[in-house]
Design a protein around this nucleic acid. Structure first.
Lengths: 228, 228
DNA sequence: GTCTATAGTCTGATAGAC
DNA sequence: GTCTATCAGACTATAGAC
């Protein structure tokens, strides 16, 4: 049985970095802030992680490895159950986005802090960030895309890929939650109490995503597009 | 008649800052990079704009002033036309999101560069950015929210506010476009040619947004929620 | 493994000549 | 208005004592 002990230096650094990168971004967070918040010496980051760039990669890797394994496990289980028949779109959307959102409740997996950090980094177009995500995500995305192609045989594949993309954006903003919502609204809506946030957000978002995924196909003004 | 002249120093700085903030973020871009790209002296930013913080505010202000005026103009025109009757949801969505997306074609208004910058900054939770957007956006958001409340009297207001938020997220990702799309897909889809991007993106996104906006209401597992 | 001390570089901002 | 020169401080990273 593993010895129970308080978080070691390496993990304290990762936790502090996760929180600070979420709040101020990668470039906006210094090693001094990170080590200060973690209560460790400045040199500890370079000793344990190597560099600031290696640190941010490890911050994501320790969470995404679990998330994508879980997404794979869920999809495999659903497909085994379906026995060759296509899955329902709602199952696929829940397997991908629901699994992500439910991380918000799991403090062992970073909780809401990691989800906000992820939503923020997905809009970062820098080559270094993009290459990392492309690598960590490609396998699971391919599997879910294929499942959607099978589930929606009448919808052109390009349309499904775009709608997948739109769903990611809506989810990213949903994660940022009340904070980002306050950017665009005074949010005087009566139910601002904190208790009913997450368990209502998930069904709310799922309805929206499925409505968008199954919307009538767009009519392009360009006539030639019909034959494509 | 105004004299036609090449962009002056101030505008060259704003253009360079817009491009660099889009690519590397606010914290990731130095004054030296900005003045270097603009081909002006380092001291010019402080002389013309005052500080780096004042610079980024002016980068947004010069575009958002036009955008929000235009959104107001379109909404006022549609409501005058409707003569007191509720607008169609598709009209409202097009007035808000369509007006934004069509900026991508207008190089005089910053084009696709500004749109990507905007999408990126909307995920930044820092107080300084949020306060600025809340101020610049509040009036027009309120008017569009009210129009949606009128157009969808059977949908609870809280639901509409959330769906507005989800639509913003989907649009933000749509703007980031092919770049962010490549994060989550190899994008081997055949129609990757650049020519047919924007005029197809708008109907694609509009279908998705309207599908989400008009989706069936979510079922909360919490029974008490029904009476709220 | 953890610390101090510091090297070497880059940052935003400004004073003052022209 | 535009320039050079420079300040004072923050940054990442590392060498070397313990």
């Amino acid at each position: 049985m593993a010895e129970v002990r308080s978080p070691d230096t390496r993990e304290r650094i990762l936790d502090a970095a996760e929180r600070l990168f979420m709040a101020h971004g990668y470039e906006g967070t210094s090693m001094r802030q990170i080590t200060g918040e973690a209560g460790v010496n400045l040199a500890a980051v370079n000793y344990h992680l190597g560099s600031k760039e290696a640190l941010v990669q490890e911050v994501f890797r320790r969470r995404l490895d679990w998330l994508n394994d879980e997404r794979m496990r869920v999809l495999n289980a659903m497909e085994a159950e379906a026995d060759g028949k296509p899955l329902k779109p709602s199952q696929i959307v829940d397997g991908f986005f629901g699994t992500l959102l439910r991380m918000a409740d799991d403090e062992r997996r970073g909780g809401i802090t990691f989800l906000r950090l992820l939503g923020r980094m997905l809009t970062d177009p820098s080559e270094f960030i993009r290459a990392f995500f492309a690598h960590e995500y490609s396998e699971v995305i391919d599997r879910y895309k294929e499942a959607l192609f099978k589930a929606l045989p009448d919808v052109p594949k390009a349309e499904i890929v775009w709608r997948f993309h739109f769903m990611l954006g809506a989810t990213s903003y949903a994660i940022a939650g009340t904070d980002a919502l306050r950017v665009v609204t005074d949010w005087q809506i009566e139910e601002a109490d904190a208790t009913d946030r997450l368990d209502r957000l998930v069904p709310r978002l799922m309805s929206f995503l499925l409505g968008g995924l199954r919307a009538p196909l767009p009519q392009f003004s360009d006539a030639e597009a019909v034959g494509k």
